[in-house]
Design a protein around this nucleic acid. Structure first.
Lengths: 192, 192
DNA sequence: CTGGTTTTGTAATGAACAGTCAATTTGAGG
DNA sequence: CCTCAAATTGACTGTTCATTACAAAACCAG
């Protein structure tokens, strides 16, 4: 290695993520990325090849970094239903927060914007969804062992149902108020 | 009126809708719209002012035309749970269809792409969501009268829960297979 | 048939787009 | 303290973007 990079690639990807997250893929320009990352145009392209490749890197980092945070919520202390409620309520809080307004979940945004047109993005999104589903399934199985969730029900099916509800909140969160969303969370937990 | 329009405005909006629906707002170019609608650039801009205004018109038409179809499913013959299942399964069918691939629901797509950045689009999306929610609420109240759905539960809350699940399917539909989605529909109906 | 108003088609606008390049700087290895 | 591969810089590419200008064409009212 001759000359070391002046920047931390992870920081740069985080900055790019902020841009893509706020505006979506198509509406984010190379200029936006240059501004946010602080890199020069040349450096950015030298290091990441293209806008598309940088977005792919962004999705990868979202998977490892942000998805892990969601999983941690489920693995925290407390009963399984409590943990699941905490997860869903964290989504409600995010969606109703003033700032950043309605940025939602990057994986969901990418799924809606690019599914069917960008196979690589779709794959990465699938990975995110799968990780959360698996964590939900583990939490539900724990709840079944502890007698908080009916043991005769299929844990995988319940996990998928809960995941579905969580992503529903990402959609309704764009227009619904906190009360409504909280009511939905109550209904979901009642169904477990 | 001096010279009559050569085109049917509704047909043109439908064509524009197809373009926006397939690619999203930002990724659809004026050129795409010209191709799809068959109009000349001049005519298109003369009649619809701007890409943004045409999109707004598109959302309005989606609300009156497509949302009505969803509502019709709920008002069809059969028990309330049957009708709700039919609605959710129509979403599953659309999401797993080969063609058009993963175009989803235009209102959901617009919500995810533009919420927080385009107040007019957000308002229109809210209107769509509200109409479906109201129709669900009516169906659920009917089900409660007929004894198919527990009468002690809040119909509005159940409608919002069901709406949430429906839009969850729009998200998971991008990566999940038909079996999984159908399983989720089963879980949702079990919760009513 | 004619006047007046609107629609239409085409060409042109400047801005913004993603991506490239050659020149320059840098610092780790020898 | 060189050498040289890699990183940086910022100007530059050609393309595509949304939108407009303008003149020709079309049609209804009188």
């Amino acid at each position: 290695m001759a000359r070391p990079k002046k920047f931390d690639p992870e920081h740069v990807v985080d900055a790019a993520m902020a841009a893509f997250w706020a505006k979506g893929y198509a509406a984010t320009s190379a200029e936006d990325l240059v501004e946010r990352t602080g890199l020069g145009r040349g450096s950015l392209y030298h290091a990441f090849t293209s806008k598309r490749a940088l977005f792919q890197e962004t999705l990868r980092r979202y998977d490892t970094h942000w998805t892990a945070r969601r999983v941690e919520i489920l693995e925290g202390p407390g009963s399984a239903p409590e943990r699941i409620r905490a997860l869903l309520m964290s989504v409600v809080e995010e969606e109703t927060a003033e700032r950043p307004a309605h940025r939602g979940c990057l994986a969901v945004n990418a799924a809606i914007e690019l599914a069917g047109r960008d196979p690589d993005a779709t794959d990465q999104v699938r990975r995110v969804f799968q990780r959360v589903e698996d964590a939900l399934c583990a939490a539900i199985q724990r709840g079944q062992r502890d007698g908080e969730i009916a043991a005769d029900r299929d844990a995988r099916a319940l996990a998928q149902f809960t995941l579905n509800s969580m992503y529903g909140l990402r959609v309704l969160g764009k227009t619904a108020d906190r009360r409504t969303l909280t009511g939905i969370v109550d209904s979901v937990l009642r169904a477990l």
